[in-house]
Design a protein around this nucleic acid. Sequence first.
DNA 1: CTGAAAGCGCTAACAA
DNA 2: TTGTTAGCGCTTTCAG
Lengths: 344, 344
Amino acid sequence: MAKSRSAPRLADVAERAGVSLATASRSLAGREGVSESVAAHVREVALQIGYVANVHARTLAGGATSTVGLIVHEIGDPYFSEIASGVLGVATERGLTVQICHSGRDPGNELHQIRTLIAHRTDAIVIAGSGYTDPALQEESDRVLTAFQETGGRVAVIGRHHLSVDAVLPDNKPAGEVIGAHVLSLGHRRIGILAGSPLLTTVADRLAGIEAALHAEGLSLDDIPVLHTEFTRDGGHAGAEELLREHPDLTAIIALNDAMAIGVLSVLRKHGVAVPGQISVAGFDDVAVAADLAPSLTTVKLPMVEMGAAALTMALKPASARRRRKGTGHQLMARDSTGPVRAR
Amino acid sequence: MAKSRSAPRLADVAERAGVSLATASRSLAGREGVSESVAAHVREVALQIGYVANVHARTLAGGATSTVGLIVHEIGDPYFSEIASGVLGVATERGLTVQICHSGRDPGNELHQIRTLIAHRTDAIVIAGSGYTDPALQEESDRVLTAFQETGGRVAVIGRHHLSVDAVLPDNKPAGEVIGAHVLSLGHRRIGILAGSPLLTTVADRLAGIEAALHAEGLSLDDIPVLHTEFTRDGGHAGAEELLREHPDLTAIIALNDAMAIGVLSVLRKHGVAVPGQISVAGFDDVAVAADLAPSLTTVKLPMVEMGAAALTMALKPASARRRRKGTGHQLMARDSTGPVRAR
DNA sequence: CTGAAAGCGCTAACAA
DNA sequence: TTGTTAGCGCTTTCAG
């Protein structure tokens, strides 16, 4: 069995169909200017010999490209896999293929992935995942992306970045306000906050929202413990242990994403702390399992799937003179993990 | 601002560096036969003008491709996103880029995605997600993949497929036996099973495992209710409602994956049924949240991340004369959602 | 050690 | 309606 004979080419199809390359190309592309009978025959031949057009040749020749890139922090994280699902949804709909890269919450690696995607001449690049509060971290990325855009590439980000590109902006601050107000309205004052790295804009914005809610009650973030750990389930777990140890009088813990909140719930269960009886817990995002946890998790819903879809849709539109920005909406999902502060 | 001036090409680098195309190419590729001084200069120039090689041109010219394809049923499903994470891990490590496609558990669409990936001349294709018990459903895919392999392409699947390619075979049957034995050992006899589509080999194999466990106790699958719904959280939810209605005397429910089990838990909680007090619940996979549910979910761990990594690793090896097969191992995670059958 | 030139497979003018 | 012919940007013999 020939191991490496090459795949059938358009020339093979053309020859077997007894037509020219151009005609074959036109027939397969379903373009104008070929008699239906010839076109049908060509298509039939192509099917027979199992012809599949070489995307690289097609792209190189100036034909329509057909791939978009997506950069996520970590695809195993439900927040990102839901966004990816949204991106894949519209991509599939439009016959596009998507290349996914991990940035691992590392600005250096993110830049590397951007370069990779550019090398692949993707039509568009969607960067999902928080930007960084330090503009310097994105300086080089911005330079590279700008060059990419000048050569006709399209870019959209999800989240607040220091990048001059179109953006889907999650309602992080309003979400923070809403969840903060919710917890405060339940009478809680001894509130602990579990945050991810302060370098992430997502963390900064959610914190700012909570602070606004606090201010409305005459309080401030300085009055309550804010712990920065990893922005993951394990970070939440570790953070909750520390919070419990250092601040045993807390009546509520707000985690800055559901993954962390799940870690918190786990610690509380382990220590036999009643939720929300003794301590209320709230998160952000409303990942799919949030409603199925026990107690079901109070959180602020961000439409991840739609965000992914919106970002790609935006990136696929023709470039506009100035950056487009799109909000996301958010919704308080008051469930069982939060309750009124206990009477003393 | 020029909107569509094109990206810098190798020719631009060569010109500015005052060398020929060939030398520029060799320098950048770090190949032999160029004086180190010249090579360094070329690299420097390339960096300066922000040159990034065009992957399509490179691939077309016969250079090494550097992308692999991954087909999953649905990236938003934790089972698949964990597998994807494993695939991305080894891909990143080797400087490969991965294209992800959704098959949506639809054989027709899966074939379409395979074609797409082949058109992209990916070095390798990894198909994650159950095969189908009906060989006819994969006949055409098999033909296409065989052709792909004959032209040097590499393929690996995760799961039992009717495809003549390398495979990572999840311990579905042993896992079924182990979880079945576990539930039986707790004294349960009125057990309900919630399964996904019987067309999926994953479902068939897990069921077979449970049946084996049943046989060991002188029972059979025919003696207990087996309900086929969607292989998702919502399928589990709907299925549990029906099971509860039709078979109110059940003392245990085994869901054929954790997603379904989560749906079951949700229904039980809603109806105030104590778990495991009144009904024990078990799942398959051990997705990340399984341990953090309340009660924590008894399940059989399958190493999804490693499976993804193993599949890509396998696919990247040179082709061998006969199909390679690799088992996965499995581990019973006996947690809080299962307990001894209640005394009457 | 370096350069010239021939493609890789396809699309897109331009002819016929 | 169909065919001919240039490239797209890169790698890679083959000369020099």
